[in-house]
């Protein structure tokens, strides 16, 4: 860990002022990923700006029936918040599928979005990695890539985004509120994370001088028909090989609205509107789910060790959609898959 300076931000404007003054500074809130990476010498900020005193801890209803979540709300508080449990159980479930109880107590809502990849090479400074050292090469493409991406990869990077919460946020079409030197703006969740392309060092479209202030959930929460299913190498406390967030609106025996997002397969939570469109208007049954899965995975590309993810993702999509359709969402503490 390098010898960074430390300062506290008094309010959002102060935070933005401080980060603008120091190109190599970083915000810190929960710290669960940043301090981890600093100990591996992967992140080396010259200054940490402590934003934990900013007034961004509210979970409140919005005028148009949604919910606005302050960026500093801890993951566990969000998962267990009555508004979230009642109206966005998909989000609650996804949060509880991630990390451990301790880390969920520490990690912030905004920070969860900014988690960096768990690609083995990104974490190891002894190996080349384009995300860590642009231009050094990607070790994973021809290396150990069992956990890497199958969708949206590039020649430069096949890393995945590790968050569970973000998969649900993508499905729910949340909006990210940010503040910067030129004021506030909103970013659609689908536009927040990036694909690696030839700039894998950039995970998101957040500008370097911006701060996340809130996540806004639209009114529609899919509380009736949803499920978050996470497949991993042990039954808890492991990153997803594949995870699926499914949210359906079913009316009169037909799917009126469908959302499908995948984790563990791409550099960002993966959504495919065409796949979702195949579900819309259909009777919820496995053949339709399979069609949607095939559409979503049509461009999937496997590498030496992760090709299994394509078929696994297909099966997981079908299963999760069935769980959602049957209103039998996966319960994270119960390991039998429903």
């Amino acid at each position: 860990m390098n010898n960074f300076a430390y300062s506290r931000a008094a309010d959002v404007a102060d935070a933005v002022r401080q980060i603008a003054a120091d190109r190599n500074a970083k915000f810190i809130a929960g710290g669960t990923n940043l301090i981890d990476l600093m100990k591996y010498d992967v992140e080396r900020p010259v200054r940490l700006i402590d934003i934990t005193r900013l007034p961004l801890r509210a979970v409140e209803e919005t005028r148009d029936g949604g919910v606005r979540v302050g960026a500093l709300v801890p993951n566990s508080d969000l998962a267990y918040h009555p508004l979230i449990e009642a109206r966005y159980p998909l989000l609650a479930s996804a949060i509880l599928a991630g990390a451990s109880a301790q880390l969920r107590n520490m990690a912030s809502t905004g920070g969860n979005l900014l988690q960096r990849t768990r690609c083995l090479y990104f974490y190891d400074t002894a190996t080349p990695c384009n995300k860590r050292e642009p231009g050094s090469g990607c070790s994973a493409i021809n290396g150990i890539n069992r956990t890497n991406a199958i969708l949206g990869t590039s020649e430069a990077c096949i890393a995945t985004h590790p968050s569970d919460m973000c998969v649900a946020l993508a499905a729910l079409e949340a909006t990210v509120h940010v503040a910067g030197p030129s004021g506030e703006r909103c970013i659609d969740f689908a536009d927040f994370h990036r694909l690696p392309g030839d700039t894998p060092d950039r995970d998101t479209n957040l500008e370097s001088q911006e701060i996340i202030t809130a996540i806004e959930l639209p009114a529609k929460g899919f509380a009736e028909n949803h499920s978050y299913l996470k497949i991993r190498d042990r039954l808890s406390y492991a990153f997803a090989l594949v995870s699926v967030a499914a949210a359906l609106e079913i009316n009169g025996g037909r799917i009126r609205d469908a959302r499908l997002a995948l984790g563990g397969v791409a550099h960002k939570p993966w959504r495919d509107r065409e796949a979702e469109a195949l579900l819309q208007g259909a009777v919820p049954e496995r053949t339709v789910f399979a069609k949607a899965a095939d559409r979503l995975l049509r461009d999937a590309k496997g590498y030496a060790h992760n090709a299994f993810k394509i078929d696994l993702a297909r099966r997981a999509i079908i299963r999760t959609l069935a769980q959602a359709a049957n209103a039998t969402p996966q319960i994270q503490s119960v390991k039998k898959i429903r």
């Binding site: 430390y6 710290g31 301090i35 402590d50 451990s100 109880a101 301790q102 880390l103 520490m106």
Partner: peptide
């Protein structure tokens, strides 16, 4: 933050003290 051996109660909540900067 991978093993939990450092867990303490911070303001009544369990956290991993290894990923907690004291100054914060």
């Amino acid at each position: 933050g991978q093993c939990g051996a450092c867990t303490v109660l911070l303001d009544g909540r369990r956290v991993t003290s290894c990923l907690t900067l004291a100054v914060m």
